[in-house]
Simulated scan of single mutants.
Amino acid sequence: MQSVEKGTATAQQPDANTENDLQHGSARPQDTPVPVGISSALDGDTEMVENENPSAEAPSPAPLNASALPAHLEILADRAREYVEAASAPNTRRAYDSDWKHFGSWCRRQGLDQLPPDPQIVGLYITACASGAATRNRKSAAVSSIERRLSALSWHYRQLGERLDRGNRHIATVLDGIRNTHGRPPVQKEAVLPEDLIAMLETLDRGSLRGLRDRAMLLMGFAGGLRRSEVVGLDVAADQTEDSSGWIQILERGVVLTLRGKSGWREVEIGRGSSDSTCPVAALETWLKLGSIAHGPLFRRVTGEGKSVGPDRLRDQEVARLVKRAALAAGVRGDLSESERASKFAGHSLRAGLASSAEVDERYVQKHLGHASAEMTRRYQRRRDRFRVNLSKAAGL
């Protein structure tokens, strides 16, 4: 990734256009999400965009001249590279790098130059993406994927000291036409409702460490309204690992999660449930005790045929796989075929499930999920408010 040339001290946030939360998504807000379609490009766990201004682009400072740096500043240059890496989530960087390579490959096949940025070439590129001419299998890209690719190009050009004007008519007009022609409603993952979650818990082995871990992950993810990266990023306490995105504090009445988002820190309170069998805090305490976990990553790999807990943190994709596997085993949405059901569930099903089922004032759900606007929270509430206000009857029909 060409984030920083030798000696470059440019650290720039990527252009958010996404957790999606589409369903990812992580955009962005209290907890800026990844751009539209980031999740789908990685693991099929898509979510709607949590960003109110997808076209906003922050100005980029001019990079330093590497040849002008004295030798003793090389250490600072290396640290600058590390900060650039930390400016965006790993999933975002992977998706942006993939899109940049895709654009470069297309330019080479067409005999065009990738540098400097040319709005006419970019306009042709997104046209090729929409028509299927940009890939060998002739598959058309979704509008959300094209918007994400534009964000990736803008970000990469900024890292190279260049600027791509997305408002240029060669890009903006073509993109408007693509939206009007190929735009579709966002595809959202199915919300896991409380009755679904209880059925999913029953499919897990209560006598195994893996089953105890998975119970705690499902209950914590649901009750906390957490993204999959937030679930696996937790540590037992603060400042224990370098790759942590937060930690827990167990209190008498519940557990407090301190989570690091892209725009700062936030706290999430998870209270104790009315029954030990479905209490997220009780499930967490059982996992900590029987898994002998006192330091480091909270949710780890279970090794040795399920008899011991390893030191390694789970990857966030494991949350999506767990939700999908448990939902299928529990027969959730049994009215659909197995292939249809398999595509309905992913990590964000837990987050959407809490938003859809918590019968409390909307502002509390908004704060819990870390949304900057009530409108974003309403997008997560899949079916909660449908037909609650019946204007047909209200009008006398």
Score class of each variant (00 low, 15 high):
S349E: 06
S356F: 06
L328I: 14
A355D: 06
A342S: 10
G331M: 05
A346E: 09
A352I: 10
L354H: 01
A326D: 05
S343P: 14
G353E: 01
G334M: 05
L328D: 12
S339Q: 14
E340P: 05
L328V: 11
S357H: 09
G347D: 00
G347N: 01
A358G: 14
S356I: 05
A342T: 06
A355Y: 05
L350H: 00
H348I: 04
A355P: 06
A358W: 14
G331Q: 05
G331S: 11
E340Q: 13
A326E: 03
A342M: 07
A346C: 12
A358I: 13
H348E: 07
G353K: 01
A346V: 12
A358H: 12
S343R: 15
D335P: 09
S339P: 12
S349N: 04
D335N: 11
E338N: 14
V360W: 09
H348D: 08
F345E: 04
A346W: 11
S343G: 15
L350E: 00
S357C: 11
A358Q: 13
V332H: 01
D335L: 06
A352E: 11
A326T: 07
R341A: 03
R341Q: 04
V360N: 09
A352W: 07
R341W: 03
F345L: 10
G334L: 08
A327Q: 02
G347Y: 01
S349Y: 03
G353D: 01
G347I: 01
A330F: 04
L336S: 03
F345G: 03
R351Y: 11
S343D: 15
E359R: 15
S343W: 15
D335V: 06
F345V: 04
A342E: 10
S357D: 09
F345D: 02
V360P: 06
S356W: 09
S339M: 12
A329Y: 10
L328E: 14
A352M: 12
V332M: 02
A346I: 13
G331Y: 05
A355G: 09
K344N: 15
R333I: 04
S349R: 02
E359M: 15
S339A: 13
A352L: 10
L328M: 14
V360H: 08
A330Q: 07
H348Q: 10
G347H: 02
E359K: 15
G347W: 00
A330E: 05
L328S: 13
S343E: 14
A326Y: 04
R333A: 04
L350D: 00
R333C: 07
E340S: 07
R351V: 04
S339N: 14
G331F: 06
S343Y: 14
G334H: 09
K344S: 15
E359N: 15
L328G: 12
E359G: 15
E338M: 12
S357P: 09
F345N: 02
S357M: 11
G347Q: 02
E340F: 08
L328K: 14
R351N: 09
E338S: 13
E338L: 13
A330G: 08
A330Y: 03
L354D: 00
A329W: 08
S349L: 03
V360F: 10
S339H: 12
E338R: 10
A326N: 08
S356M: 07
S339F: 10
A358T: 12
L336W: 02
G331L: 10
A342D: 06
L354R: 01
E340D: 11
R351L: 08
G347M: 01
F345P: 03
E340H: 10
L328W: 15
K344L: 15
H348L: 10
E338V: 12
